[in-house]
């Protein structure tokens, strides 16, 4: 799963597969981090009712 592990081979298959995997994981991780940090900042700023609820949701 990580380079350097037992039996790791850097071939085309690995690059494609691991590239796709870490790309997807990166997006998921960054997206989630962004949401959590933004929510924390907004909460700290007391922007509780700053946006309408239910308009753009769902």
């Amino acid at each position: 799963m990580f380079p350097g592990f037992f039996e790791w081979i850097w071939d085309g298959g690995h690059m494609l597969f691991m590239g796709g995997l870490w790309y997807a994981l990166g997006i998921i991780g960054l997206g989630l981090t962004y949401c959590i940090f933004k929510a924390a900042i907004e909460t700290a700023q007391g922007d509780g009712e700053g946006h309408g609820h239910g308009d753009e949701h769902h």
């Binding site: 997807a24 998921i28 949401c35 959590i36 933004k38 909460t43 946006h51 949701h57 769902h58």
Partner: peptide, 23 residues
């Protein structure tokens, strides 16, 4: 408040998650 903001933010970038999900 935190949950309210978090839900709103997650909805905001849901297209990114949906695209990743489709991939």
């Amino acid at each position: 408040p935190f949950f309210h903001h978090l839900a709103h933010n997650m909805h905001g970038i849901m297209a990114v998650f949906a695209a990743t999900g489709a991939f």
